[in-house]
Design a protein around this nucleic acid. Structure first.
Lengths: 173, 173
DNA sequence: GTCTATACCCGGATAGAC
DNA sequence: GTCTATCCGGGTATAGAC
């Protein structure tokens, strides 16, 4: 593993521990045993580091989803599980500041593929389910639900709504 | 209208135009025709201003939802419409940094009431629908959908999933 | 209640010696 | 490829004059 990859892993660990606020060039450098200016010998700017972290996050989430069993329920559980296990990575990969220009093309589609398959190729339903999963995860991470809320039940209710018989009429044959 | 309210409205306008990044004490003061330190004669700190903006945002969204017609479809349209009309206010009211301690108690519940009613009081389904609405809005605002995506169709597909007959068995009587 | 001046943080990034 | 020194910007907040 070269120095560049080491630095990215350090940055990821910093992101996990202290969130995006803690991801400063100075902090990364300190953990890497150097001064901030030296980082610029490895990366042209901070945005490049962030793009690398986004790519890793998207790959990680995509891998988790592809390993999930078939069915919307397993997919939803994998999505939620990954997001809760790596909340800051999830935020980085799902947020406004997606560095699309620097991401490998097709990576987003790869992450979405298992979901699209699970709803029988119905793109509208796939987007609705994605929205639900994303929204439930964000609200949970933001602490918007009462601590006593039964979120397993909410997820089940939501998933059930999408796998009820007559709403799967999009895959008749 | 007193000076304090004027400043809050100035801050809200600044938030609308330039997002949370643009909401600095210096910028607020400049628009209010004063210097930043003078703001501290009206508010103890910036968090107080942010809390006021959150309260206004929550009230605005709640009002919009309560004005919406009955039914999940109308409710979803009102939710999406308000969020798209005031994206930064929506982000402030839905984000991680909710200043709960400074918000009037019951305000969150009031905003949620129409939704809970629309799903017949089933709290799990209400949370799932809320998650879907929030997620779809966030993904749309974040530009995560292709520009050609038919989001009206995605919303319809999602809402339909929750109003399909046998999934409304929670309201038999 | 406004001002000036300022203190004290933080951040990203560059220049140039070695 | 590392360093020191530095520049530039941003931010919240305080002190004290008026």
């Amino acid at each position: 593993m070269n120095r560049r990859e080491q630095i990215i892993e350090i940055a990821e660990d910093l992101l996990d521990r202290h969130g995006p606020e803690g991801l400063s060039m100075r902090a990364i450098a300190e953990r890497a045993g150097m001064r901030a200016p030296s980082l610029y010998k490895h990366f042209p700017d901070k945005a490049t580091i962030e793009a690398a972290l986004q790519e890793r996050a998207l790959r990680g989430l995509a891998a988790s989803l592809s390993r999930a069993g078939d069915g919307l329920g397993a997919l939803g559980a994998a999505y939620r599980g990954w997001a809760l296990a790596h909340p800051h990575r999830y935020a980085l990969s799902s947020g406004q500041a997606l560095h699309r220009d620097r991401l490998p093309i097709g990576l987003e589609d790869a992450a979405a593929a298992p979901l699209l398959a699970a709803v029988g190729g119905d793109i509208d339903r796939a987007r609705a389910v994605w929205g639900m999963a994303h929204g439930l995860v964000e609200l949970e991470l933001a602490g918007r639900f009462p601590s006593a809320a039964d979120l397993d039940a909410a997820w089940t209710a939501g998933i059930d709504a999408f796998i009820s018989p007559e709403s799967s009429k999009a895959t008749p044959g």
